[in-house]
């Protein structure tokens, strides 16, 4: 077996820079007078969404609501996945009707998680618009889904990407290979 060429794509500082860049891009494209909300996809998207909200506040954005989606019940591969970690609550403590929603996830790969998240969101109401923000984008889309805001792109195909966050994994870093 070939030795895997694992390398660090983002360290703590670079990750913070990426998120700050995402925050600035989001703020330059905001529609007038539409309330903003950031919704993270469990589990790492939840953590990233929380950080993004803090950054947006820091950059001067007014009240922003934050929520979390558990997409387990909307996945299309229940039959293949077998026993799973515990299902957790979807926690969207605000009315999503008429909102401008930033959907946040750690990695965009096949697009299936995002598809499930879109279904889960529209079951809760009718947002004004939904935009997708991801920390890492990698090739391998199986659905016609693209991100609107991307922290960093991996261009090589078939390179595994691992996102680790301090809150869950003890360290902020993204590794590839």
């Amino acid at each position: 077996m070939a030795e895997s060429q694992e390398k660090i794509l983002l360290d703590e500082q670079a990750m913070a820079g990426c998120l700050e860049k995402l925050g600035r891009e989001i703020l330059t494209n905001l529609p007038e007078g539409v309330p903003l909300a950031v919704v993270g996809i469990r589990s790492r998207g939840e953590v990233l969404a929380q950080r993004l909200v803090d950054i947006l506040h820091h950059l001067g954005a007014e009240r922003i609501d934050a929520g979390t989606l558990d997409i387990t019940l909307y996945r299309d591969d229940l039959a293949e996945r077998g026993p799973q970690a515990v299902l957790r609550k979807t926690d969207i403590p605000f009315d999503i009707d008429g909102r401008f929603i930033i959907l946040m996830d750690d990695v965009l790969h096949t697009g299936r998680s995002v598809r499930a998240a879109l279904d889960a969101l529209v079951d809760l109401g009718r947002p004004r618009a939904i935009r997708l923000a991801v920390l890492v984008e990698r090739p391998g889309r199986e659905l016609p889904i693209q991100a609107d805001y991307v922290g960093v792109r991996v261009v090589q195909e078939d390179l595994p990407v691992a996102v680790r966050l301090t809150e869950s994994d003890g360290i902020d870093e993204v590794r590839v290979g």
Binding site: R42, S43, A85, V107, P160, A162, V163, S168, R175, G177
Partner: peptide, 9 residues
């Protein structure tokens, strides 16, 4: 490396 979409906990 764990898979990209490894769930927390």
């Amino acid at each position: 490396l764990p898979a990209a979409h490894t769930d927390l906990g």
